[in-house]
Amino acid sequence: MIPSSTVIFDMIHKDLRFRLVFLVDEEGMLLREFLHSKGISKRTLTATKYEGGMITVNGHEQNVRHRLQVGDKVAIIFPPEQPSEGLQPEEGPLDIIYEDEAILVLNKAPGQSTIPSRDHPTGTVANYVAGKFVSDGLPATVHVVTRLDKDTSGLICIAKNRHIHHLLSEQMMSSGFHRQYIAIVEGHVKDDQFTIQQPIGRKDGSIIERMVREDGQSARTDVKVQHPFTKDGHELTTIALVLHTGRTHQIRVHLQWAGYPLTGDDLYGGTLQWIQRQALHCAVLRFKHPVTGADMQFESDMPADMQSVSRIL
């Protein structure tokens, strides 16, 4: 993580390429070594050199062998990014929870895909974010850090630059990126708190469905009971979940395996009696800001359709 005392954003430019500025506090380091100490990879330096970026010291372009002095101002201007051919920028509504030069945190409604697919090539979160970047004049593409299924609601984090995406992905791999969900499952969950640690892989014969299987990828989900209740004679439980890995359909598969399918999740054994989509919502994101190192936390309330299920009438 980059120390906040040595980094500032520097976006007060007509040139809106993403840039970071560092103040040098150690004498005699090579520029290459200094940038590496700030989390800038060799690959990023190469891309910066050959794909339209720039590295400057005190406003003058320098190569990576330049030797630095205390008090020097080092700027890395990242190369412009273009959306992939499969991502068409569109104008559309975005529920923006937080935005700065590096990240964007959104609240996604149920029923909207995060990224385009063959079945949903337009109208996705990524389409609308790409459209926003075009409108804002940012030479950036969409880097989805935390992706949600189409029918899962809640918080999504998006990076505005691939270097920022890389830093946040490293946090996720080291369990420094906290994702908490709230869900409504069928049945009264017996244990107040437990962990499901079962590998997940594709179900034979299906391109969509996943299952717990020995040859799958490792996956861990922590479960904590919030509120068991009975609705129309049926036992249900509101639970909180923390993801430690990010496998496709992880929560849905793990809860089915545990015997508590999400209500509304008919793909994995849930009923559609009270809600027409899986009752799953990303309620909390907590991580360190990839540039400043500041602790960031964002919260989203349970949406109305899930509240109507949990309300005992």
Rank of each mutant, 00 (worst) to 15 (best):
L255K: 06
L285G: 08
K150F: 05
K190D: 13
L16N: 12
T230I: 14
R65A: 09
E51I: 06
R286G: 15
T114M: 05
G205E: 05
Q82T: 15
I76H: 04
K38T: 01
I196Y: 03
R202N: 12
R286A: 15
D151A: 03
V74P: 06
R247V: 08
L94E: 04
S113H: 11
I156N: 09
G246W: 01
L262N: 03
D222G: 00
R19L: 09
D295L: 14
G201P: 00
Q197C: 11
A140I: 05
V291M: 10
N63S: 12
M29K: 12
K231L: 15
V70T: 14
L272Y: 08
T292H: 09
G269V: 05
R247E: 11
V70M: 13
V309P: 11
V74Y: 00
T46R: 15
H163I: 08
T114E: 05
V284Y: 05
R202C: 05
Y260M: 03
D25H: 07
H165G: 05
V57T: 10
R247Y: 07
I2F: 03
F22M: 01
A102W: 00
P79I: 00
A126L: 01
E81F: 04
A126K: 01
A304D: 13
F133E: 06
D72S: 03
S174M: 08
P89N: 05
Q62W: 07
L243K: 01
Q256T: 08
G28K: 02
E235L: 12
P116T: 02
L148D: 12
V24S: 00
V144Q: 07
Y98M: 00
L280C: 01
I55P: 08
R179V: 04
A140M: 13
D301H: 11
F133V: 06
I8S: 13
G92Q: 00
R17M: 04
L243V: 00
E90T: 04
P93N: 07
E214Y: 09
Y268D: 03
M11G: 10
D15I: 11
T56L: 11
H66M: 06
